[in-house]
Amino acid sequence: MRFSLPGTGDVRQVPVFGCECKVCCQARVNVRRRRRPCCALLETPQGDLLIDAGLTDLAERFEQKGLNAILLTHYHVDHVQGLFHLRWGMGEKIPVYGPSDVQGYADLLKHPGILKFMPAAEPFQRFELSGIGVTPIPLQHSKPTYGYLLEYNNSLIAYLTDTVGLPEQTQIFLKQLLKERRIDLLVMDCSYPPQNTTPRNHNDLNMALEIHHSLRPCRTVLTHISHEMDLWLSDHPDSLPDHVQVARDDDDFLF
C-alpha cells in the first residue's frame, strides 16, 4: 500500500497571492516549497482511493490509470473544486462518498455527470472500498465534516482534516479503538502556529500536538499548512517532538 499527500496546503495555498513573506517568495522559485490544496491518495493492488478533490488537474492525473472512488471530508471549495471538470468526462461512474450535506457545493449534487454521489456515509460505521476498510469519524468544522480511518492488511491510517480539536464522541471512539491496536500513521490538520486563543476552524500546533499525545500514533504528519505556519517553522526549526513531522506536497509512505 502506498499512501501519499499530493497537496498539503490550506485554502490560500503557498505561495499566497500578493504575499511577499520569505516563505511565499521561496515558493515562487522552488516548486518543492509550494503547497497545493490538501488531499491524499491511497494506492493498493485493488485500486486507488482519493481523499478530497481540491486539485484542479484530476482529469489529467487519473485519465490513464483510473480512479476507483473518492472520499470527501466536506464540501468547501478547496476540497471539491477538481470535481467540476472531472464530472463531465466519459466512462464508468466514479463513486463519491462523504458526510451528509444537503447544500453540497454549487451544482455538483444536481449535475454530477460521471460522478456517482453515494448515500451519506454513517459515522463510525466501517465499510469497504477496493479492499480498504473505511470508517468515517466526525470532525469539528464550519460544514459537516468527516475524517477517515483507513485499514489495509494490518496497517491503520487516521486522516483528520479539516478540524479544530476533536468532538467528544470521536475522542471516545478513538480511545476505545486504541485499546485494541495502535494507529500507524496520523495525518493531522495543523493550519496555524501556536495561538493564544483557540482558532475557529483549524488546529494550531498546540491543538495538533495535544491530539498527537492523546492518540500516541507511531507517526504523526501535519498537513493543511498555511504560509503563517511555514513561516513560524522556518524560525523554529527544532520545535516538533519525535515522531511528528510537517508534510510536503507529494510526500509518500509505504506500508
Results as ranks from 00 to 15, higher is better:
Arg87Asp: 09
Asp78Glu: 15
His76Cys: 13
Val16Cys: 10
His224Lys: 14
Leu177Ser: 10
Gly98Ser: 09
Ala208Leu: 01
His79Ala: 12
Lys93Trp: 01
Val11Ser: 15
Thr8Gln: 12
Leu150His: 07
Asp52Lys: 07
Gly113Gln: 09
Asp204Met: 04
Gly9Pro: 06
Trp232Asn: 05
Met1Ser: 07
Asp52Ile: 09
Gly18Lys: 03
Trp88Glu: 15
Asp204Lys: 04
Val187Pro: 00
Leu166Val: 12
Glu228Gly: 01
Ile211Val: 13
Pro194Ser: 02
Val244Ala: 01
Pro194His: 00
Val187Cys: 01
Leu5Phe: 07
Asn154His: 14
Ala59Pro: 03
His202Tyr: 12
Thr170Arg: 06
Leu149Tyr: 01
Leu49Phe: 11
Glu122Pro: 01
Arg34Cys: 11
Leu139Pro: 09
Val14Thr: 09
Leu72Gln: 04
Val31Ile: 11
Thr220Gly: 04
Leu231Arg: 11
His111Asn: 15
Pro37Asp: 12
Asn68Val: 11
Gly104Phe: 02
Phe173Pro: 02
Leu67Asp: 05
Leu55Phe: 13
Thr135Gly: 04
Asn203Asp: 10
Ser4Ile: 04
Glu128Ala: 12
Ser142Trp: 11
Pro37Ile: 05
Val31Met: 12
Leu50Gln: 06
Phe255Gln: 07
Val244Ile: 05
Asp101His: 12
Gln169Pro: 07
Arg28Met: 14
Ile70Gln: 01
Leu5Gly: 05
Asp230Leu: 15
Leu149Ser: 04
Leu222Asp: 00
Glu60Phe: 10
Cys19Glu: 00
His243Gly: 05
Pro138Asp: 03
Val102Arg: 15
Glu60Gln: 14
Leu166Asn: 08
Ile70Glu: 00
Leu109Ser: 05
Tyr148Asn: 04
Pro193Cys: 06
His236Ala: 09
Glu92Lys: 12
Ser239Gly: 08
Pro138Leu: 06
His111Ser: 13
Met118Asp: 01
Ala120Cys: 08
Phe84Lys: 10
Pro199Arg: 10
Tyr97Arg: 03
His243Thr: 08
Pro167Gln: 07
Gly89Thr: 07
Arg61Glu: 11
Cys190Met: 05
Asp78Phe: 13
Glu122Gly: 04
Asn203Leu: 08
Asn68Trp: 14
Pro138Met: 05
Ile137Val: 14
His76Ser: 15
Glu151Trp: 02
Leu209Gln: 03
Ser155Thr: 15
Thr163Gln: 10
Phe253Arg: 03
Glu210Ser: 12
Ala40His: 07
Leu215Tyr: 13
Gln176Tyr: 12
Ala158Tyr: 12
Lys143Asn: 10
Leu209Arg: 03
Pro241Asp: 06
Ser214Gln: 12
Ala121Gly: 08
Glu63Ile: 08
Arg216Asn: 14
Arg36Lys: 15
Ala59Arg: 11
His213Ile: 02
Pro217Ala: 05
Val221Glu: 02
Val23Leu: 07
Leu186Gln: 06
Glu43Cys: 00
His243Leu: 10
Ile132Ala: 02
Cys19Ile: 00
Gly18Arg: 05
Cys21Thr: 00
Met90Arg: 14
Val134Gln: 10
Gly47Lys: 10
Cys21Asp: 01
Leu5Asn: 02
Ser234Leu: 11
Pro119Met: 04
Leu149Arg: 04
Asp204Gln: 09
Leu72Trp: 02
Arg28Ile: 06
Leu109Asn: 06
Gly7Ile: 03
Pro95Ala: 05
Val31Lys: 14
Ile211Gly: 07
Pro138Ala: 06
Ile172Pro: 01
